[in-house]
Design a binder for these strands. Structure first.
Lengths: 115, 115
DNA sequence: CATACCTGCTAGCTTCTCTTTGCATGTGCG
DNA sequence: CGCACATGCAAAGAGAAGCTAGCAGGTATG
């Protein structure tokens, strides 16, 4: 998979929203150094597992992290997360281009239906 | 100045949060084409003035837009907004670096910045 | 078999964000 | 002078997001 070509409208909002949070920023930072499993990462970051789960899910929904369930040597099920390498560049012009593909929050959402 | 070299922790969160919203993305996009005054921009975007004000304030707080009060020919006070040209590049590594400068949300520490 | 790890989920509270509505102010024009 | 247009701010409700606490299940080790 490529490194985030240019997220279209809604995707951009989702990515930005997923990053606009101190905890999730820390999570990305931690995973950038090395992949980690949920419980270990929670301890490392000093937050609860439940909270970490929520944030991880949001990051995963934005496609920034991925999970892979693995079995440790001693039979424990470990869910390892890792960052998806990405390069996101934003300028007013790039944003202007992305906005063109924003879907309207109302009923119908046809790709390119207004203007 | 202020082409956002590499926003430190909290600034990054603020910038990301300010961009993580469809309305504000549209605002940036509109201002990227040309500067505009509040009422005119509100009509152009099809949103209420009050709502636009709030979003503009958030963008301004993040340093992405600036306002300049001007007097029109017919004496009306017009508040013109324009985007601040910026280039924001994000990668997991850059985020990891920014996280180092994140302030802890502990008890009191920010001088009068609480809502 | 109790303890210690690992995983996941949800109910419920709290807090923040978004949005509307309304008020207040100022200037120019018919 | 009232209408049209410009500015601003604040209260208040709805909704989304954040967080905690608790439950349930799995496998290994003492």
């Amino acid at each position: 998979m490529s490194s985030a070509p240019s997220p279209i409208g809604d995707d951009l909002v989702r990515v930005l929203a997923s990053l606009a949070n101190p905890h999730r920023l820390r999570i990305v930072a931690a995973l950038a150094r090395e992949r980690a499993y949920v419980s270990g990462l929670a301890r490392q970051l000093g937050i609860s597992r439940a909270l970490l789960q929520v944030h991880l899910r949001k990051l995963a929904a934005a496609g920034l992290v991925t999970a892979s369930l693995e079995l440790s040597e001693d039979g424990k099920a470990m869910n390892y997360y890792e960052v998806q390498p990405f390069v996101l560049t934003l300028t007013p012009e790039i944003i202007a281009a992305a906005v063109e593909t924003l879907t309207v929050p109302d009923s119908a959402e046809q790709p390119g239906a207004d203007r």
